[in-house]
Design a binder for these strands. Structure first.
Length: 630
DNA sequence: ATAGGGTTAG
């Protein structure tokens, strides 16, 4: 096989042959594509510049950067480059190749170039930084982590901050936080680089508060340290702290980069903080940051999770480069927002473009079918997973199928499906059946689903809540009590309901029955006002979906204090008239809150968008986008 | 000239 760069790229990414903007090797950056490198290669050849050793080295560095695209020919191509080198091996050249292979299809190849380097040259501190990173990526290599560490010490590079940083990340990645701390303790007074690595390792290990201590103790913090800390909060779901830190970061005049914004957008999506998300979007436009695939996908996801599918799709279609994450994210957003048909249409377009869906894509596809009630189509997609794409369904896909049948009222088919699953049905499958039973009010089957669910996962609090709600809806208070007792007996505690809402760029939190909000008194007054207006409109609280069998009056009180009601009341107080009320709730919405929200949307002429644990509810003029079906 | 942070979708 002829291994010209042109051949490699043509096979790897033929479209990339057509587009190019860079003209010199030094113009390359980590987002440069192999196609662009090819253009540079051509120009350098034409002008005979590749005979210049410095230009050649630069060119190799450029290729190494572009190797983020996992080319299966990377190894052969690296050898070819070395064979054609106009000068003997240089440390820079071999370092570049080592680095290239870390991100390539087989990181173990990095060691090959290390051996070659040892043949005639001495490694430097860069070599070790890359080599340690290679250890992380290529677990099975002849150079064990310890031996690389030992070599770094032997050659006197073990006190370099970047080598430290790589070692800390390596040990943390292998789950040996002790070893990472040992390396770190050797450089206690060390600079920002090593501290940032330790901070990141702690955050990744779930020790986010210890990470924060380290961060606060740092004598000086650079943007990378800030990013590591913000990302840490964002990943563990402490989104408010992520956003707070982001605003401090800006107050300190730190440079905001793509990495920062990806974490910030993730946090905004998690919280449903649309205003802050929009602000981040306009920030990157104002500062002309390139919308990379990752950043664009994060934007699509943020808008979707804030219930703004129009903007999500606007960003989606404007993106020049989209990958399977981008498509899956957009599809998931549409399905979540009840736009099942649009989700499936997008799936067709994705396939037409020749992009391969993966397992996650299919979760969105099946959810799209489910919310659109397209049972047969869902079945076909499910079958095509294995037949056309060689993807073995995961438990999540089986759960989606149970939901698809169950939601459509085909409870027998749902049960059949569970009984014929090739894997042991997990809690998700039984939970989907239980939810279907709740929707279609089949208590008997619901009890069976519950029994099975508890067998595989006895501490699933949402199952108990679902079951209890089912009994309550049919006024079976004995059943409600039994569920309650059984929860007590097993020590299962219901996750407290919590709603968050953004007002004026600030995120407010409301807990079920909670009085902690500083404007609680006004909220109570507003709740009374809501109650009065709804009564005038002919509505009396439906008191059939409460956890406990209590006196009627108390029940109404208990209902009013569900966190989403507190949030809606505060929204009516604090948001300008005509502004949509956007709420994110951690549990599923109950029947009464759903009904009340519909009525408020009509009586107060206010649009309410509520994201619950499962999907979106867009309340407008007395109806909900879920068609009372969630 | 090469190095630390971040990898987005369920």
């Amino acid at each position: 096989m002829k291994l010209s760069l042109r051949n490699i790229i043509a096979r790897h990414n033929p479209i990339a042959l057509l587009d190019s903007s860079s003209t010199s090797a030094s113009a390359c950056n980590p987002t440069t594509t192999l196609g662009q490198v090819l253009q540079i290669h051509g120009q350098l050849l034409v002008h005979g510049r590749l005979h210049d050793p410095d230009v050649f080295d630069q060119f190799v560095a450029a290729v190494a950067l572009a190797a983020g695209i996992a080319s299966p020919f990377l190894l052969q191509y690296s050898h070819r480059l070395l064979d054609h080198s106009p000068h003997s091996d240089s440390v820079f050249l071999l370092n570049s190749l080592i680095r290239a292979h870390i991100r390539g299809p087989d990181p173990g190849h990095a060691f090959h170039f290390y051996r070659r380097l040892l043949g005639s040259l001495s490694p430097d501190r860069f070599t070790f930084t890359f080599l340690v990173s290679a250890c992380v990526k290529a677990a099975a290599s002849p150079f064990s982590a310890a031996s690389v560490h030992a070599a770094a010490i032997r050659r006197g590079f073990a006190s370099d901050p970047h080598v430290h940083s790589a070692l800390i990340r390596m040990y943390a990645e292998f789950g040996d936080l002790e070893a990472a701390l040992r390396v770190y303790s050797e450089v206690r007074d060390a600079d920002t680089v090593a501290r940032t690595a330790m901070l990141g390792a702690l955050a990744a290990a779930g020790e986010i508060d210890h990470a924060r201590e380290l961060f606060d103790d740092m004598p000086s913090r650079d943007p990378i340290a800030w990013n590591a800390m913000i990302a840490g909060y964002s990943q563990v779901g402490r989104s408010r702290e992520a956003l707070q830190l982001f605003s401090s970061m800006q107050l300190e005049g730190m440079r905001v980069s793509e990495a920062t914004l990806v974490s910030v957008l993730t946090a905004c999506g998690h919280l449903g903080a649309l205003d802050q998300g929009k602000w981040a979007h306009s920030y990157l436009q104002r500062n002309r940051l390139r919308i990379t695939v990752t950043l664009g996908t994060a934007l699509v996801d943020m808008y979707s999770k804030c219930g703004d599918t129009e903007w999500a799709m606007e960003v989606f279609w404007r993106m020049q480069e989209k990958n399977v994450y981008t498509w899956s994210s957009a599809m998931s957003g549409l399905a979540m927002n009840g736009a099942g048909k649009e989700c499936l249409k997008l799936f067709d377009q994705m396939k037409e473009l020749g992009l391969l869906p993966n397992g996650v894509t299919f979760i969105s596809v099946l959810r799209g079918c489910s919310v659109a009630g397209l049972v047969e189509e869902g079945r076909q997609h499910f079958d095509s997973m294995h037949e056309k794409y060689g993807i073995n369904p995961w438990r999540e896909h089986y759960g989606c199928m149970v939901d698809l049948y169950g939601r459509a009222g085909l409870l027998d088919d749902a049960v059949d499906f569970i009984n014929n699953m090739p894997i042991e049905p997990h809690a998700g499958a039984w939970g989907a059946l239980l939810n279907a039973c709740r929707i279609h009010r089949n208590i008997e089957l619901g009890e069976y689903a519950m029994k099975k669910l508890v067998e595989v996962e006895s501490r699933n609090d949402s199952a108990y809540v679902l079951m209890s709600n089912m009994y309550a809806e049919s006024r079976n208070w004995e059943g409600v009590n039994d569920v309650r007792e059984s929860m007590k007996g097993k020590g299962v505690r219901k996750e407290p309901g919590c709603s968050v809402m953004e007002v004026g760029g600030e995120v407010h939190e409301f807990f079920v029955g909670g009085k902690s909000h500083p404007r609680y008194k006004e909220i109570v007054l507003m709740l009374q006002e809501i109650s009065r207006k709804l009564r005038l409109a002919g509505y009396t609280a439906k008191t059939n979906e409460v956890m406990f069998n209590i006196e009627e009056e108390e029940k109404e009180d208990a209902l009013r204090l569900h966190s989403e009601k507190l949030a809606i009341a505060f929204g009516l107080i604090a948001l300008d008239e005509g502004t949509c009320i956007r709420i994110v709730k951690n549990l599923r919405v109950c029947w009464d809150c759903h009904d009340t929200s519909k009525l408020i949307s009509r009586v107060f002429q206010r649009e309410i968008i509520l994201r619950d644990r499962n999907r979106f509810h867009h309340f407008k003029d007395g109806t909900c986008s879920c068609k009372d079906f969630w």
